[in-house]
Amino acid sequence: MSGQFAIETHTLTKQFGAQTAVNGLDLDVPTGAVFGFLGPNGSGKTTTIRMLLGLAAASSGTAAVLGRPMPRELDAVLPRVGALVEGPAFYPFLSGRDNLLRLDSADPHAPRASRKARVGQALERVGLSPAASKKVKAYSLGMKQRLGLANALLRPRELMVLDEPTNGLDPQGTREVRNLIRSLAAGGTTVFVSSHLLAEVEQICTHAAIMRAGSLVAQGTLAQLRGEGKRTATVLTPDAGAAKSVLARLGLVPDAGIDGEGVADTGFDSTVTAALPADHLVPEAIVAALVADGVRVRGFSVDTGSLEDRFVALTGEGFDVAQ
């Protein structure tokens, strides 16, 4: 059995000369999770994936995949893992089908009798059947990406490691990949997906980890990650000044708004925002207090920080999160 964690690393470190690409990584990917591995470009995501798959040796620290130490038991682990590493790569002069046949024959555990059938099914699953006989050099980036996914799907896998799986895909393709990941997860496969498309991770992942400059800065369930960010209460009212004093009386600190006083003037109505500490009173009590003081409340909301807020807070601005 693979145990509690599909991927578990302890102080995993990779140095290239003087540069530390991955620094003391303690990653815990629960079995059955859809795990988003986030981080700006160059934060060590792909290097970590390379170490997990035995492509690169760790400078120090340990990694276990499906409960077995890597890279020592690589031959036993990798047949159970499907992977898309740093984009698809194929023989341009071979057809899509022949590329998959080639990669499948490289796996000594892959049953030979079912090879053609499995390749056909994998192509079908990513919608490439009509282009299966075309040479890969005639494929678009999106088609290559699909072929890469088909390669990962050649056999039933316990773990899928997908590095930027939606790179180069059109919106329909992105949607299909999301559905694919959901169906894999529903079938019990652990999915480890690295991405910088945060909206996507928020939609499909149950867990996530955030990398910055080679170090892990946060990991946990999505709710935990969002929850660690602050909650914000927003009041929409024409009586901004009164609302502010009520909030202050309740122990909240209204944010400095556009006008510098936590009050943003939006025509007749203004918005007043204030950070809401986790242990603070329930939101409806705030509304009740406002109304009791005669503040005309025209809108009230409590926003949990989005993953994006959290991500930017942890990794700093300047990263193209909207890409």
């Binding site: 798959l53 690589l74 893992v81 590493v85 790569a89 023989y91 341009p92 990669l103 490289a106 892959a110």
Partner: peptide, 14 residues
């Protein structure tokens, strides 16, 4: 150079 080496090794070709 083509990038297929990583996929062969992950297959795992050994």
């Amino acid at each position: 150079g083509q990038g297929t080496l990583r996929y062969l090794l992950v297959a795992p070709a050994g």
